Amino acid sequence: MTQVKTIEFITSKINTRNPVLIYFSAESCSVCTALKPKIEKEVSKNFPKIEMFEVKADLYKQIASHFTVFSIPTILVFFDKKEFKREGRNISVSLFIKELERPYNLFI
């Protein structure tokens, strides 16, 4: 996952109309650290055209607030410049992947 440090960078990526996943985490979040490699592996394997980015919400609070993210971990998925999915806290990786299949296949 590419680290994001500015709102301008991530909004430019969303505006390309390509599928984008943003993973909001924090330095001190053990759940974020454990979940990130699982999400990264499954999304890369199942949806190779989704670009993945990570925002450290504790370091870049302005980005987190811009996307109305107040808890971590939170995952946002965008298709065609629109937020399609928002998952937070207790995330089932298998269910998350299953829920992305149909829209991914429609937009790609």
Rank of each mutant, 00 (worst) to 15 (best):
F107L: 08
F107P: 06
K49G: 04
F53N: 02
P19D: 07
R86A: 14
K56P: 03
K82Y: 13
T68R: 08
I22N: 06
L106W: 04
I10S: 01
S12N: 14
E99D: 15
P103R: 07
E87M: 13
I91H: 11
A57W: 05
E40G: 11
N15V: 08
I108G: 14
I7T: 05
Y23A: 04
L76A: 15
N46L: 00
I50P: 01
C32K: 04
L21Q: 01
F96M: 14
P73Y: 02
S28A: 05
L106M: 14
V55C: 05
C32N: 05
F96T: 10
F96S: 13
T2C: 04
E40K: 08
K41H: 03
A57T: 07
F78R: 04
E99A: 14
I63E: 01
K82A: 14
V43Q: 12
I108P: 12
A26V: 00
K36I: 09
K36H: 10
K81P: 05
F78K: 03
I10P: 01
P37E: 00
L59D: 14
F70R: 06
N18H: 08
F53H: 08
F79P: 04
R17H: 04
A26S: 07
P37T: 01
E42K: 11
K61V: 08
I63C: 03
L76K: 15
T16C: 00
C32Q: 04
R17P: 00
K81G: 02
I72N: 00
Q62D: 15
I63S: 01
T11C: 09
Y23N: 09
M1D: 02
K82G: 09
F47H: 00
N15D: 11
S12H: 09
P48L: 13
I97S: 13
E99W: 13
F67C: 11
R17G: 02
D58V: 06
F67E: 11
F53S: 03
R102M: 10
V55T: 05
A64D: 01
K13H: 07
A34M: 08
L59K: 13
T6G: 11
C32T: 03
I7P: 01
K98S: 15
E83H: 01
P73L: 05
L106A: 14
K98E: 15
L100E: 06
K85C: 14
D80E: 10
K56C: 07
K38A: 00
I14C: 09
R17C: 06
F70S: 10
K49E: 09
L35N: 00
F67V: 13
V69I: 14
S12G: 11
S71L: 06
T33E: 12
V43Y: 13
N90E: 13
K13V: 10
Y23W: 09
L59Y: 09
E40L: 12
Q3E: 06
R89C: 04
E99V: 13
V20M: 10
V77S: 06
K81R: 12
K56N: 13
E51C: 05
M52L: 01
E101W: 06
I50E: 01
T11A: 07
